[in-house]
Design a protein around this nucleic acid. Structure first.
Lengths: 191, 191
DNA sequence: TCGTCAAACGGACCGACAGTCCGAATCGTA
DNA sequence: TACGATTCGGACTGTCGGTCCGTTTGACGA
């Protein structure tokens, strides 16, 4: 509709900021340790630019996160089994949770950043609503639990970023161990 | 050991700060909206006092939380069934989780404050370690799950303060509903 | 190629807040 | 009452998220 012209430098800067933020979060131990000034500096961009493009800190983190998670979401939306929509519900539930877990294992710091700076509550982020919707619908199709909505929330809580981070960093579990345990656990819940 | 004499005003101020903080957190929607200056002012105390007694913001929140949760912890430690140690493990697991849920329902804002300002990760707080220990040991005695340690983490994730807050404030569930759902869910996990 | 102007840039600036510091006030004791 | 140890309190500091506005730049028509 209102198709103005996109400026070349604007697009370039956007990518630079995304990349810089991604790198900084990945390197830093705590998301709190990464300031907006640092991101701006690392991206070779003024602070004003950064806030104009992304609104605020939360918006920036969400943008980085969204960019990173495009692949998983596409696989769930329209990929082949066991993630895609054609999968039998009973097989898809564990596949969904495993995929989300694997993603968080591979993007631990970024995920923690999203959940803790994500506008107060992680539950407000669009990304959570999306996963919850998919999981709820799939779960409802299995008839395994009395309240698919509630069960989805609780199952998603099992793969929260800070829990995963704790299991890996403090308890020393490997990614594969966690995946195994989660699989057993989900199996039990599905009955 | 190093039992010097406690000054009367020091003790009085400590109580005043605890009470003021408790009240402010309970009233405020978001823990972020409560500043140390506000707490100091509400307690009729200087900021220096506040930081000397509690070290930092996290220390203060933990102190308030600890004071509030003394009763539950005593009930678990040495109370009668179904919470106390004499309870059969299979009955105690749901009782423990229900007690924790009820506590969080009654202290929603304070709990959220602890989990989000609790020194980066909620898992570092002493209070988490304690609950996890009790739950793990009880769970291990039931032989219901292959890995009691992991299962405890995941079950505790089901009663995280921000999830409870979300279910109540956004999804409009009542406390009783949540308790019911949690009970069913735990039952499924115990098999 | 050049002129025009909306859009984008960047960094100085602001307000808020956690945490520090030290002279002043206060308590317990002899 | 006098004295020393302990605690008080609020001015002060450094940092950080977010804003503002004068300057620059890129797209496009002539």
């Amino acid at each position: 509709m209102t198709e103005r012209k996109a400026r070349a430098d604007a697009a370039r800067n956007r990518e630079a900021v995304l990349a810089a933020a991604d790198g900084l979060f990945a390197r830093s131990d705590s998301p709190r340790g990464v300031s907006m000034d640092q991101i701006a500096a690392a991206a070779g961009v003024g602070k004003g630019t950064l806030f104009r493009r992304f609104g605020d800190r939360t918006g920036l983190i969400r943008a980085v996160f969204t960019a990173r998670s495009e692949a998983v979401r596409a696989a769930v939306d329209s990929g082949p089994p066991p993630l895609g929509p054609a999968t039998p519900a009973r097989d898809r539930v564990p596949a969904l949770l495993d995929a989300l877990l694997v993603f968080k294992l591979g993007n631990r710091h970024l995920s923690v950043a999203l959940e803790e700076s994500g506008g107060g509550s992680p539950y407000e982020a669009e990304h959570y609503g999306w996963w919850h919707g998919v999981l709820r619908d799939t779960l409802a199709a299995t008839d395994a639990v009395p309240d698919a909505d509630y069960a989805s929330h609780v199952l998603l809580a099992a793969v929260r970023a800070d829990l995963v981070e704790h299991l890996v960093a403090v308890e020393g579990m490997s990614g594969e161990e966690i995946r195994g345990r989660l699989g057993e656990y989900v199996g039990k819940v599905l009955g």
